[in-house]
Amino acid sequence: MSSQPAHSQHPRSQHPRSLGDKKVLGIAIVFLLVCALTALASDRFLTLHNIANLLRRSALFGVLSLGAAWVIVTGGIDLSIGSVVCLSGCLLPWLVVDQAMSTPLAVLLVLAIAAGIGLAHGLLVARLGLQPFLVTLCGLLLYRGAARVIVDDQTVGFGTGHLALRGIATSSFDVLGLAVPTPFFLLIGLSFVTFVVWQRTVFGRWLFALGRNETAARFSGVPTKRLVASSYVICAMLAAVGGMLFVLDVNGAQPTDFGNFFELYAIAGAVLGGCALRGGEGSVLGLLIGAALMQVLRNAIRLVDALPNQAEYAILGLVILGGVLIDEAVRRISKRRATGK
């Protein structure tokens, strides 16, 4: 993984491991630990049904984290993910059921709208130089508001029809007795594409370069504005894919709360998985584990009686804080080793 930052390798180590790899290893250990503890505390955790359910939730949130990571590696942030989930999740059933639009057309239209939203973010950030935080914060308010106006605050869903379409999110494939949900395969596909683009293409190498030092990248001839804009487009489109999958899965979206806080799950998953908010660092494997960890934690809070359901946000907050602290500790220790002091 040559584009991973390697500023912490032990000078005399036989098997030098980059900081990015260490972060992935760290999050994987935390993930396994949480799984093991939950399994010990609840006998409902390791049931086939629960695992299949966890895979489905992780896959849906994984798509959002993947999108968030595209923006985070450029050093930006997208706070509008949850609202784009809401808008696309409300638009799809509204178009298909209420407006009787053909399904492929409706899906394409939703994706096109998301691309437009991402492009607007990208141009405002890259061309006008506005703060990504502010631009997407306005987006957060705007798109949820738009969704509420369009469907007039009514719950939208597919009712009992459109089973074939809903199957994209609800169906599963039997793998060795475990019902692996279709969205999980979709996530693997999207992740693989992201991995290849990040690691193997000029586009990806330049994206990480500009995340590390935008000025140096621009002076080196990297088309930084175009790259930043594309990353916002990709993020918004992945949020729309996630939003459509969510509404197909639960068969109903209420615009006032559909997708609430999802941007935070997405960002937290990516950051736990090793994407540095200052940009230029990120690993697909890490962010997938990070996104899954968030879902396992939520699952654990429901299953383990000792953990009160009301404490969900508090526990998530503490775990993310803990993850960030461990990350910082790893960084400092490796730095100290590298400088030999």
Binding site: S2, S3, P5, A6, H7, R205, W206, F208, A209, R212, N213, T215, A216, A217, F219, S220, G221, V222, G280
Partner: peptide
């Protein structure tokens, strides 16, 4: 430092960037 290099990037990444 600020305009020429990705300090955290490798020698290889920096040389081949442009």
């Amino acid at each position: 430092k600020f305009e020429g290099l990705l300090l955290e990037g490798s020698v290889l990444d920096n040389l081949t960037l442009s």
